[in-house]
Amino acid sequence: MIAFAVDPEALKNTIAAALGGKARRVDVKLGEVTVEVAAADYLAAAQILHDEQGCRFEQLIDLCGVDYSTHGDGRWEGARFCVVSHLLSVSLNQRVRLKVFASDDDLPVVTSVTGVWASANWYEREAFDLFGIVFEGHNDLRRILTDYGFIGHPFRKDFPLSGHVEMRYDAEQQRVIYQPVTIEPREITPRIIREDNYGGLH
């Protein structure tokens, strides 16, 4: 297990005190502190985590989207899209995970934190590209990983693994064309969730 300079339980209390009513949930699991905030408090909470003594998270290490729609084979209740950030404090040697759920499933909107951490820029572009999460206040929200002119958000759970279009060279037209995919996703190993204590492993 990875050792930290600051005890996760102590960090949990510090963060809970710093955020006060802004934190919906603060917990420690597997030695990692997770904070969940409401979409309305997201930017303010990020600023507090960045500035407050005892927090001082100078670095946004990672930011990504998660689509919870099929989590636990449909047992998920709650908002569909979540933005998860991993923060690191170099001065205090501690980490925290910051989660925020977008309130609207059809048009997920979350405030941008590029003003707090410049590194959020590309990460938010990526989450927009792959999940269609809109970051309000981001000044350059373009697609980043997918092709020019790509349609859809490929990491959403309702987007097929094989995609919708494929590219090939057409000898007649003498150019590269797009056409509907000719392959089908082939899943050899089914996805299974076992009941609790199956096999006595956990």
Binding site: I61, D62, H71, D73, T189, I192, I193, R194
Partner: peptide, 20 residues
């Protein structure tokens, strides 16, 4: 820093994997 973030829902496959 290279990091892997997993969200698991108890299945034999990750629910979400993010590569930092």
């Amino acid at each position: 820093e290279f990091g892997i973030y997993f969200v698991s829902d108890g299945a034999n496959k990750p629910y979400r994997m993010k590569i930092r």
